[in-house]
Amino acid sequence: MKIKEVIVVEGRDDTVAVQRAVNADTIETNGSAIGEAVIHRIQLAQARRGVIILTDPDYPGERIRHIVSQRVPGCKHAFLPKADAISKSGNDLGVENATPEAIRQALANVKQEFENPQEEITWQDLIDGGLIGGAQSRDRRERIGSVLKIGYANGKQLHKRLHVFQITKEEFSQALQQVLEEENND
């Protein structure tokens, strides 16, 4: 599988994992202290080929994703569920731990970021769906992020991602229904 866009990853081990899964070029941020030279390379890649951000499903990874998407508008995003990024020992979380199939799946479900998103899903929809302020909210957000392929996020970030990736009310409702049905079957 050849990927036209350049994939932004955190480090060398992530590049190795991505290149085991697909034929692609990468830019490594080398952690969350992203220098201007790296931002410039990402901007150039975005202008010439497009960019897909694939970072670890943890706080530092989300911070890098946010920094890059703020400085380089119009990026695409690929998200790995936490379950697919945990090491065999269970004490490390990252792209480098994902199987080639999990990486291919994340890249197959890439989401385009839109500059002026239409607000379709309201804050009240998140409250009504039990995604904010309830005992099971965190788990539900993690599960709905996985179903929609937009990754885990806190309530505020989930609301933003639903809009930035233009998830429709229908897609949201179907995903929420699936999460609630799975909950009832557990």
Rank of each mutant, 00 (worst) to 15 (best):
M1F: 02
K2H: 13
K2R: 15
I3E: 11
R12Y: 15
D13Y: 15
A17H: 08
Q19T: 11
Q19R: 15
R20T: 11
A24D: 06
D25I: 00
T26I: 06
I27E: 03
E28D: 09
G31F: 04
A33Q: 13
I34Q: 04
R41C: 06
L44A: 12
A47W: 02
R49M: 00
V51C: 03
V51R: 07
I53A: 00
I53V: 15
L54D: 12
D56K: 12
D58H: 09
P60L: 08
G61F: 11
R63V: 14
I64D: 06
V68Q: 01
V68L: 07
Q70F: 00
P73Y: 02
K76H: 09
K76M: 07
A78T: 13
F79P: 00
K82Q: 15
I86S: 06
N91I: 01
G94W: 14
G94S: 10
P100L: 10
E101D: 14
R104T: 09
Q105E: 12
L107N: 13
V110A: 12
Q112V: 03
F114E: 08
E115H: 11
E115W: 01
E115S: 14
N116K: 09
N116R: 07
Q118W: 00
I121S: 02
D128V: 01
G129K: 02
G130I: 08
I132E: 04
I132T: 11
G133N: 04
Q136K: 14
R138T: 12
R140I: 05
S146D: 13
V147W: 05
V147H: 07
I150W: 08
G151M: 06
Y152F: 15
Y152G: 06
H159Q: 10
R161T: 05
H163W: 07
V164D: 05
F165E: 10
I167G: 02
T168A: 06
E171R: 12
E171Q: 15
E171N: 09
L176E: 01
L176Q: 04
Q178A: 14
L180C: 01
E182D: 14
N184W: 02
N185Q: 13
